[in-house]
Structure formats: structure tokens, C-alpha cells
């Protein structure tokens, strides 16, 4: 029983991180129909920025905030400086460009930050907390992870659901031409979409790094799982990304705990195949709008 609970809690924590990463992918996919393969190295870069700030003698929290802000700025720069110039010139070009960015950011990080493993601090304990004399696998940092992701998601939902800006962003994503006719500055909304996505990606990067080692490629394994989580949820649905991430995190924790960790990648693939066979549009695919 205890192992069961511990496995579930561990899965929930990693699931939250997958969820955040998937959310970052969904935000960009929704607004620009681009699968951003550069999401992982972008998060890696901002995590290294955090480490640089912390190494310079500032607190963890300052590093954390600077990394999120850097994520926002990096996302905006990517959209303005790079992605915008391939917009509307074939979707595959944009996707290949993000693959190119993946490689460039990797190389740049290796040059600037070095190619070694470096340890990244955590603001809370990374040992299990005690409940009734027993230690459960939920760490202080795990609780922080869950809360941080929930807060960011709550803020995003509030932004999209309840604010004028969120309404404009959704309109720009769903129907850019009509949005323009209604006075929405669509390019600006796309920049903002990339910036927010990159911020969420940075959060995922920081949470994965907390209390462990970072390296220019430490995020790469998350790309695959985050992508699977996003597709599970339907790619278009932020809520789907979250549910997909949690589902994946918990399932993979059980596979790893009870069947063996070497089966994790295979299991992820299997889950993806099964879900897509049952619901080709993902778990949260909305029924297609009627065509009059």
C-alpha cells in the first residue's frame, strides 16, 4: 500500500512537470500551428540563466524570477526575430526551423555555459515528508512543483477566460483574418503567445532542474514525454495538456515502479497509440464545429 501511494505521488509530481511542458507546446500550437521542438533547449537556456544568477550570489527565488522573465523575453525574441519570417510559407518550414533552433541553442549553451553537469539548488527539501511516523515520497520540492504548476495554469485560464486580452489572443489563434477585421493586432498576439509559452516552458525547466543536475541536454528526454502528453490531450486544449501530463506521469511512475524503468519509453508510446486509436483527436478533442 505504501509503495502504491508513493508511486502515485511521485507520478503526480513528474506528471505536473510534463503538464507544464505540454502546456507550453499547446500554447504555441494553438496560436501558430507550429510544434515548437525548441521548447526544451529554450527552457534549458533559461535554467542556466537562473543558475548563473544564483551562482553570482543571489537567492534561489531571484534566480527563479529572472529565469521566468528570461523565458518571456526569449519566447518573444524567437517569435519576432525568427518564426515570424517563415509565417505563412508552409507549416513544415516553421517546424524544421524550430528543429534548427534546437541545435543552435544546444550548441550556444555548450559554448556559453559549458558542457558539464552542474548541480542546481532546490528551495525546499528534496527528502520525503513524514506523515504519521512514515516517510511518503512527496518532497517539499514536490509540493512546490505541484503548487507552482497549478498556479501558473490557473493564471493562464483566468487570462484566456476572463480578460479582454485573453479573448483577443484566442480570436487571433482561431481566426486571424476575422480577428484583424475586428481590430485585433494578430502579430502582437502571436508574440505574446510565444512569450507565455516560453515562460511556462521555463517553469518546467526550473522544476525538473530543482535538486538535481543540469547540462545542455538535460531537458531533452522531457521533449518526447511532454509532446506525448500534449498529443494525448488533443494538442489544442490547455486542459487536455494538463490531464495528458498527469495521466502520463502517473502511468509511467507505475510502469517504472512495478514493471521496471527500462519500459518507460515503450509504455509512453503504447499509451499514445491506444489513446489515438480510441480518440484520434486526443482525449479532449472537441467535436468539429458544424459547417452551417
Amino acid at each position: 500500500m505504501q509503495q502504491f501511494i508513493n508511486t502515485a505521488l511521485g507520478g503526480l509530481t513528474t506528471g505536473m512537470v510534463y503538464a507544464a511542458f505540454a502546456l507550453a507546446l499547446v500554447l504555441i500550437w494553438r496560436s501558430t500551428r507550429v510544434v515548437n521542438f525548441a521548447q526544451a533547449p529554450m527552457a534549458m537556456v533559461t535554467t542556466f540563466v537562473a543558475l548563473a544568477v544564483i551562482d553570482a550570489g543571489f537567492s534561489y527565488w531571484i534566480g527563479f524570477a529572472v529565469a521566468l522573465a528570461a523565458g518571456l523575453v526569449l519566447g518573444a525574441i524567437m517569435e519576432r526575430g525568427v518564426m515570424r519570417h517563415v509565417q505563412g510559407k508552409g507549416e513544415i518550414n516553421a517546424v524544421i526551423l524550430t528543429l534548427g533552433l534546437f541545435i543552435v541553442l544546444h550548441a550556444a549553451a555548450a559554448v556559453v555555459f559549458g558542457n558539464d553537469f552542474r548541480s542546481f539548488p532546490a528551495p525546499f527539501g528534496v527528502r520525503g515528508i513524514e506523515v504519521g511516523g512514515r516517510t511518503v515520497a512527496l518532497t517539499g520540492f514536490g509540493i512546490f512543483t505541484i503548487i507552482a504548476v497549478l498556479v501558473v495554469m490557473g493564471l493562464l485560464v483566468a487570462l484566456f477566460r476572463f480578460t479582454d486580452l485573453g479573448l483577443r489572443m484566442r480570436a487571433a489563434a482561431f481566426n486571424p483574418e476575422v480577428a484583424r477585421l475586428l481590430g485585433v493586432r494578430v502579430p502582437r498576439m502571436m508574440t505574446l503567445g510565444w512569450a507565455l509559452a516560453s515562460l511556462v516552458g521555463s517553469l518546467a525547466g526550473l522544476l525538473i532542474a530543482g535538486g538535481s543536475l543540469i547540462h545542455p541536454s538535460y531537458m531533452d528526454s522531457v521533449v518526447v514525454l511532454g509532446f506525448v502528453a500534449a498529443v494525448l490531450g488533443g494538442l489544442d486544449s490547455p486542459l487536455g495538456a494538463v490531464v495528458g501530463g498527469l495521466l502520463l506521469g502517473v502511468t509511467l511512475a507505475f510502469v517504472s515502479g512495478y514493471l521496471g524503468s527500462q519500459l518507460v519509453a515503450l509504455a509512453a508510446l503504447l499509451i499514445l497509440m491506444i489513446v489515438l486509436m480510441v480518440r484520434p483527436g486526443g482525449i479532449f478533442s472537441t467535436t468539429a464545429a458544424r459547417r452551417v
Binding site: 479582454d164 479573448l167 483577443r168 480570436a171 482561431f174 481566426n175 472537441t286 452551417v292
Partner: peptide
């Protein structure tokens, strides 16, 4: 008919007013 099908009726109207 350029309605934004993914938004509600009210959201479409609000968007019009935001212009």
C-alpha cells in the same frame, strides 16, 4: 459568415465591441 466558431456567441459580440 465570419463567425469565430470556437468562441461563444457572447464572446464574438464582446470581441466586436473591443474594436
Amino acid at each position: 459568415r465570419g463567425v469565430i466558431t470556437e468562441l461563444s456567441v457572447e464572446e464574438n459580440l464582446r470581441l466586436g465591441g473591443l474594436g
